[in-house]
Nucleic acid binder design. Structure first.
Lengths: 144, 144
DNA sequence: CGAATCTTTATTATTATGATAAAGATGGTT
DNA sequence: AACCATCTTTATCATAATAATAAAGATTCG
């Protein structure tokens, strides 16, 4: 799995928002960027995409910011990654100008099967589960 | 699944070699390139990678060319695609300069899980199975 | 020897990714 | 009303990855 920096940034930004989920005040971009060391201007674009996908909501104006649109256990890794990179889009053949050869058509079917497996794996993991794993990981590092 | 043009070319080139598997003479690059409409110089590099991966063998000199290194039912899509793009390589974080944050470490583990699913899906389909699907597809187009 | 072919490496063109910048719109606060 | 912090939108640039081209060298058959 080759994940883009953008999608990874999106995941950690969502983690930051998940940590703030109980709070009524939204988190400003600047705060998220500093907490997670994400280039602020890049994060601007990332949050816009997450918003377009309906994963976060924004509050404009002074004391504005971002919040999760719904509970962390109702948001999956697939949601986040597809919002940024759209790995769920129908695979296109890199070749195939115009009509598909039979061989390429069959290959496309295979890429679809593989992609479906990937999507299922990403859907199995929610943002809440991600938070849980990180906490466990943290706890472990103190057991030693 | 976002597959590179190079990997797709590799698959159709392997199909051409599979069709020639029973023959004792190897297929020259030029013949494969023309049959499958692959840029010949590009195919040069592709076959080199397939050879390095041990999927094909080459015969040099006049009347030389390429042949599958083993039976089509002993070659999987994973073999071919990994020879070209190496999708089996350990996922690296696009972020993470130096030591990983806890969050990024956990994310890496998830990318690994997802990648493992992808690999399993690609390993399930052999070159022989691909040939079979294309023939079926062909047969279907005449049943109408 | 010479033609056909693989081998190896270098270069270029195009596209995707990662990042930066800034002007405009909005809304709370004074 | 003015101001400031913030989101919004669009444009631009730099770097890296991908796709493709090119060509000189090595090998073997006839």
């Amino acid at each position: 799995m080759r994940i883009s920096a953008k999608a990874e940034y999106a995941c950690v930004a969502m983690l930051e928002l998940a940590a703030n989920f109980a709070e009524p005040q939204p988190l400003p971009i600047k705060v998220i960027a500093e907490a997670q060391e994400i280039p602020q201007n890049f994060l601007v674009q990332i949050l816009l995409q997450l918003k377009t996908a309906g994963l976060v909501v924004s509050v404009r104006g002074a004391s504005g910011g971002y919040q999760l649109a719904r509970s962390p256990d109702a948001i999956t890794m697939a949601d986040i990654i597809n919002a940024i990179d759209d790995r769920a889009a129908a695979p296109r053949s890199a070749l195939a100008k115009g009509r598909l050869s039979r061989a390429v058509g069959v290959l496309l079917g295979i890429w679809q099967e593989v992609q479906a497996e990937e999507q299922r794996a990403l859907q199995r993991i929610t943002l809440a589960e991600l938070v849980r794993r990180i906490q466990e990981d943290h706890a472990l590092s103190y057991q030693i």
